[in-house]
Amino acid sequence: MMGNLFSYFYQFADVFSFLVLSAAGLAIIFGMMGVINMAHGEFIMCGVYVTAATFHAGLPLPLAQACGTLVAALIGMVLEVVLIRPLYNRPLDSLLVTWGLSLVATQGTLVLVGSTFPGIGTPGGGFEVGGYGFSVYRMVLFAASLLVLAFVYLLFMRTRFGVHARAVMQNAGMAQALGVRRSQVYALSFGIGAGLAGLCGALYAPTMSLIPTMGASFIVEAFVTVVVGGSSVLLGTAPAAAALAIVRTGLNAWYGQIIGQIGLLIAVILIIRVLPDGFSGWLAKRES
């Protein structure tokens, strides 16, 4: 009984953290700038590869993961200045540029680093509840996903950058007139989004096999979470991830992974039909 109850929680937590971690970076960039970052998966891959490379070079895993996150964030900021800045008023075009970027990144990694990369190995071992074995590291991932949500909340609600960012989001022109530098805010936002993608990669690096195209396995989940969440990370991502995690966990458990996958996509379509602006649009409307 205890085992079964905990197992439901564990399954839910596992899907939830996957959705939150893979979507957070995408959501910030989309919510702040209206840019759909098609290279999101490649920022994740970048986090994975940097983490694995620094780990193999001898750094302890947490430090290696920090490196992965930072490198992705830095690359994100540089790319924002070079590629995204000229396209501020053309969000659809930024979709294409980032798609081009993702092609270059995956294939470039393949050519430069090779088609496979040695894995890391999951730390932490397992624990048992009610006769079932579970992975400790998965619980770490769940904690990390809650921390990411808290970080995003504090960043936007309690810092100067957050005030500026929300101002730009609501009315870029007005914010600029009041002295907020939009390009600075955008560069930082893109950096933070890319960094969160890198973090996702860094955290999942020890649990996956590493190939240059691995970013793709996060993409579908990241996109649907963002769509269901709507344009605000603060209001949208957590409830969207929770709702989708419930759908997916239930379907996975009762009907298997195939139905889980298809069901997830159908749930997205239904939710969007009812809430065209996603959870955050709906919540914002209720508040006002």
């Binding site: 197992s7 564990y10 399954q11 596992d14 899907v15 996957f18 006769g131 079932y132 074995g133 992975s135 998965r138 996956m208 691995m214 793709a216 396995s217 966990t249 996975n252 458990a253 298997g256 992974q257 195939i258 889980g260 996958q261």
Partner: peptide, 18 residues
Amino acid sequence: EFIPLGVSQFAQTIQNIQ
């Protein structure tokens, strides 16, 4: 159990096995 191509998360499967 049949797993869709591209799926990388297996918590449910692992539990079914147990």
